[in-house]
Design a protein around this nucleic acid. Sequence first.
DNA 1: AATCCGTGGGT
DNA 2: TACCCAAGGAT
Length: 342
Amino acid sequence: MLDWYDRHHRTLPWRAEPGDAQDPYRVWLSEIMLQQTTVITVGPYFAAFLQRWPTVNDLANADLDEVLHAWQGLGYYARARNLHKCAKVVADEYGGRFPDTEEGLLKLPGIGPYTAAAVAAIAFNRHSSPVDGNIERVISRLFALETPLPDVKPEIKEKSAALTPSDRPGDYAQALMDLGATICTPRNPACGICPWQASCEGRKSGIAPELPKKRKKPAKPTRVGYAFWIRREDGKILVRRRPEKGLLGGLYEVPGSDWRAIEAPDDVMLSEAPIKASWTELDGTVGHTFTHFHLDVTVLAANIAESDAAKLDGSWTTIDGLSEFALPTVMKKIVRHALKYR
DNA sequence: AATCCGTGGGT
DNA sequence: TACCCAAGGAT
């Protein structure tokens, strides 16, 4: 496997050249960003973070709002909140140095079993065996494990750990992930060029492409709601910061109603507007899909007097000034819709 | 243990 | 279109 890795070595922004020492900060930052996120998506975010905050101490000294702003669009925003929290812990309690063991790393915010093992192996050459989605796929196929996820996870971890060599465990882990990303792919795996084809039980029995088995996910429900596009006399728009926990926590939003499974009567929705006003319903709706539900938002627009605006909580901003706020993708869509139809 | 938590690309 | 999937973690 390491032979294959050396021959097919991918140069990635966070990966040190062969023989060079790894920077734990870069390894950690990349691993957090790569959680449930593709390499191609992470690239520019990683570069921007590294340029703006070259060390963990720099990141620790940033404001959370700055970090969320730099993270906007990447999703799973709890990662950004925990990233910042973790940087502060490392800077303030660990002298700016990451713990160099799996157990030590596991104690830090935002670092779970996978990331602790990955950073320990890649940054500190510890004999750890991270198991991500790629490695779950590779191992379940190699041993033809037909038990569905997540039940089979402990068995995968056991098999994977037994295979991990003492020499270059970090490169070994990255090799397995590269194998899963480029050859042992979810669909149409390229078994013919796989370095493990001779010993792969899944290939022998012809079930490799169907593994790992997973339980079917429940269908996503649709929720509906209103967004209130409120324009002050000077043309500025009202935005507000969402609570720090939960969906899109800590990011900014165009004020809105609750998002409900069933459309509520107009008077209920309007009672949730920040202010009484003469609303104009804009054409069409804004659709967005989150992890566990679809959302359809209707945008209501109103111009309000300066005296009324003074009663409202939030921040008033010009259209251009919106770029200074951390807006999740659904809110960017709402802004675009409002500007198009208003 | 099961649920919550984003987004963009591929098929 | 409607799914699936991606270097998962917190509660």
